[in-house]
Amino acid sequence: MKTRLITSLLLSLAIALPSLATAADYTIDTKGAHAFIQFRIKHLGYSWLSGRFNTFAGSFSYDEANPGASKIEVTIKTASIDSNHAERDKHLRGKDFLEVDKFPEARFVSTAYKQNDDNTAVLSGNLTLHGVTRPVKIAVTQIGHGPDPWGGYRRGFEGTTTLKLADYNIDYDLGPASREVELTLSVEGIRQ
């Protein structure tokens, strides 16, 4: 009787305080679309044009006791680019830009995670895009974490970085104001 009580106490403690768990693996919730890979680039220097990649998958691990050991990996289907204009998307998938036939996937694999005292961090890693792999640094903010209403546990981040298109051998001339593209990665992971 006593052992059963202790066991159930421990069990409920384990359920109630899941955040005490160490290094946890999270799957990015692309199924429920609580993750977004968005880009924006200046149009002629007069306005911002926004778009996103609709199809991607990834996972990350995060250890509250040792955030520096966090890792993330995301693979993006380049053909899923969506700027809300079919003819433009067709152009972006073609030979002037992403060449999705030749380079169907883009990938980010982290190499380091430096967390600051607040909820921000710098995530370093290698981005492979258009067949070119280059190191990038992503400014990350942890948005929040905790149990969800359906029995799971979630943790979410947002990261931003800026890429020079020419660095990835994308050299179609969109004008002097449009040589860089901003990427925003919003991810919510469900703990496995």
Binding site: N84, H85, A86, E87, D89, K90
Partner: peptide, 8 residues
């Protein structure tokens, strides 16, 4: 079908 693919 190219130009109207997005409903435009």
């Amino acid at each position: 079908l190219i130009s109207t693919a997005d409903g435009r």
